[in-house]
Nucleic acid binder design. Sequence first.
DNA 1: CACAAACCTGAGCGATCGCTCAGGTTGTTC
DNA 2: GAACAACCTGAGCGATCGCTCAGGTTTGTG
Lengths: 186, 186
Amino acid sequence: MTDPDRIQDGRRRKGEHRRRLLVEATMRVIERDGAGSVSQRRVAAEAGVPPSAVTYYFAAVDDLLVATLTSVNDLYVERIDALGTGDEGLAALARLIAPTTEEARAHLVAECELFLMAARRPAMRPEIQRWTATLDAFLAPYAADPVQRTGVATAIEGMFLRGAYSDANAPGPDEVHRILRGLLGR
Amino acid sequence: MTDPDRIQDGRRRKGEHRRRLLVEATMRVIERDGAGSVSQRRVAAEAGVPPSAVTYYFAAVDDLLVATLTSVNDLYVERIDALGTGDEGLAALARLIAPTTEEARAHLVAECELFLMAARRPAMRPEIQRWTATLDAFLAPYAADPVQRTGVATAIEGMFLRGAYSDANAPGPDEVHRILRGLLGR
DNA sequence: CACAAACCTGAGCGATCGCTCAGGTTGTTC
DNA sequence: GAACAACCTGAGCGATCGCTCAGGTTTGTG
């Protein structure tokens, strides 16, 4: 995504800022009410802009969802790339997976809903592949065998999902770390 | 769920049949249009009954979704219990996980959406726990260590999720089988 | 300072939504 | 066959939905 502040043209710069504002508002709506509740009007109210402003920047509600998924993905790819290596990298990944606060859990639920939406929307599919590729690249140093790597990657996604349900019995960062170590034979 | 044909009272029997009809219609609506598109009117149209009939049997739309999740879960618990043991049990599980037809994939997407809904609806949480417990019980003979078992269980759920995205690069039954064998150290 | 481009909005159309309710039908019981 | 319980429905209220559009404002350009 283009950095708004790098844009010369003041008109476009303002527009790009507004676009971001809307994506952030969308994320808050999803966290609070669910991805199915994203509507032009709700996002507009959350962002404090008139409804038609949403239509101006995103022709359809689906386009808004694609942009939001892309934004979430940007952050995750960045985080994965910054995890580090060896066992510390694994521990950091575990901390990334397991939500420790109720706020983090709400965020996680929102992300899961966004990802699952891709199952029905071809426009979102490339983002899924980007995530999958990023995760696979991170795991490569830990597991040379691609079959094992896919197994661990799916387990990671499964743990994200379980974190979304939370309640007491969800695995915390320490247990996630132990599980990862176990799956990778360490 | 109570078997409708076992009910003596003809009034109640008919009612229970109708209730099932509505749950099945709901599942078809979810497969076609997504869990977010489930509405009293849509389900009614799909089932060929007047809208008020839906309200009569399920006070709110959420109740309909809970009933549908329960129904899906019933089937899965039954299937898991019938998988068998040893490597053949593992192969059968792999066949259960990986969708081979487009129809199976659509069904899988619907199931994932229903499960994820539980993250926001406490009324659905017990069904998640029922599934988790069933899966854990199946895996017990394959892995004594509970940490490893949770790892494999989350991988299974991750593979369900990946099957929902499908496309070419999704793992087929054979690869799922290989992954499972690998994770269980066989 | 004229012109253009990009930004921005209020009003509103037709459709769908969840849910209520008064009243009608069918099946069971005694 | 009277009394009752369960089943069943059409009509409709108020709210929200996606999306369109004509026209107004701000910002950059030559």
